[in-house]
Design a protein around this nucleic acid. Structure first.
Lengths: 222, 222
DNA sequence: TATTTATCAAACTAATCGGTCTATTAAATA
DNA sequence: TATTTAATAGACCGATTAGTTTGATAAATA
């Protein structure tokens, strides 16, 4: 603490020797992440071997363990990569002012279905896949998965609050609770769609959810 | 075809040599199934090794491969065992005439939560677990998982029809669709409860589902 | 140029995987 | 009793696993 200016980021500090490339510039690393996302969304963490990812990405053991200290560490980075990708997708819908809030949510749902259809419903959600494997995953990975889901939920809740402000849904609904409900069930729908290799479960769940949103609580019999 | 009376069941036909025990009497087999259910509901098919199950059940390789021709074959039998266990549990609630149909469903849900709590929310649903692994499971196993889910759905739908007949929920609801919605989302809730190691996701989903059932479709705005 | 570190290639390792094989004992029939 | 099959034990096998090590080359600084 009394030392002067500790190195804040090693990337920035000048060293002797060859400098580390910026993460965006690390081609092999990006290839590994990309291949990892493909394989882990289709299968899972344990079912996919490092060798398989090496083969798919055209890299080698040396490269892999240069960039990641272990397979679990690679998994953590995959979660972050997926989170970034997914948060961007959610924002592109939920912040789209040309659509009503409820239509933004519908847009996201349709988008997700299209995405699954593109891969013949063989790939699911990385977070759902890894969540199922929590018993064999490091604790840090599990808690990160929970955080990611909560992030998606809060983004969804914000969209629902907007829907309330614009009179699309009742203000008496608990937006946070509805968003939580959505993500609990949506992961189930993705799992089922993957199992049955068809979009029907996604549609069935979405239909039910929008019906639920259409309720005015004081009209219901609780 | 022109031969007389082909042996219909080998179990029944008299052989020379030691007779095969009735399945119910095969102690080691039952121990293997029991251990398999414990481990596979907590983790999954790929994550659990045969050796682990041998150790937990106090048997050996010889015994395992005497009773099951492969690990996948063992998995199939686990699905059947789980299906039997679960169908009995569903029936014990859904056919309980001392409760209203909707209270039967609530009873099942509470029962499921108690069951998960008993194991500190570490064990989930075998069908959900294996469903997530469908990419690495034999096709026969996948289609059986779908059938089992559909069986649970149809039992649930029958309970909802009864609720309609007794005026607990609107007759305009599509009972089959509601049952499908329930099982799509419920598997998601079990997954989430296991990930977070708490009952909240189960309760949140159940709350939403019962609210949905309370709707009279012609009152909703679609 | 000499040194240092980053990046990558691939042989290698110890452990574990599902599954096979051989041997032994148990329980039935002829 | 001799024979046949069921049931169990556990050594063994080839393949695969995550991870290590060694060595080569690239790119920077001093």
């Amino acid at each position: 603490m009394t030392q002067n200016s500790p190195p804040e980021k090693q990337n920035v500090v000048k060293h002797r020797g060859r400098p580390r490339k910026a993460p965006d510039d690390q081609v092999a690393r990006k290839q590994l992440i990309k291949a990892g996302l493909v394989y882990l969304t289709e299968r899972g963490f344990s079912d996919v071997s490092v060798d398989e990812i090496l083969k798919a990405s055209g890299t080698t053991k040396g490269t892999f363990y240069h960039h990641f200290k272990s397979k679990a560490d690679f998994g953590q980075d995959l979660i972050e990569a997926y989170h970034s990708y997914f948060a961007a997708k959610l924002m592109s819908w939920f912040d789209n002012d040309t659509l009503s809030p409820l239509h933004r949510l519908r847009g996201f749902i349709k988008d997700a279905e299209t995405g699954m259809a593109k891969h013949d419903f063989r790939r699911g959600c990385l977070v759902g896949n890894l969540g199922q494997e929590m018993a064999v995953l490091p604790d840090a990975m599990c808690s990160r998965l929970i955080e990611v889901l909560q992030d998606w939920q809060s983004r969804t809740a914000a969209c629902l609050v907007l829907a309330q402000q614009q009179g699309e849904i009742s203000c008496e609904l608990d937006a946070a609770a509805m968003a939580e409900f959505f993500w609990i069930g949506w992961e189930g729908a993705v799992l089922r769609a993957k199992l049955e290799r068809k979009p029907d479960p996604l549609r069935r769940f979405a239909d039910g959810f929008f019906t639920l949103l259409s309720i005015s609580p004081h009209q219901s019999q609780g």
